[in-house]
Amino acid sequence: MPKCPECDADVTVGGDAVKGEIVACPDCGAELEVTETSPLALALAPEEEEDWGE
C-alpha cells in the first residue's frame, strides 16, 4: 500500500486509478497525485496551472 509522502500514513487508492488522479491522505488531508500506477506511486500534488481566462 502506498504511503503519504507528507505524513507516512497508508493511503488506499483504487486499483483502477489512473496517472494524474488526485487523492486525499486520510490522515493529514494532503492532496496526493498518482504518478505511477504499476506499481502505485504517490507524490504531493502540484499546484494547479495558472490561467488568466474564464
Binding site: E48, E49, E50, D51, W52, G53, E54
Partner: peptide, 8 residues
C-alpha cells in the same frame, strides 16, 4: 488531465 486555476 491538467487542473487549472483561473484569474477570470
Amino acid at each position: 488531465a491538467r487542473t487549472l486555476a483561473k484569474s477570470g
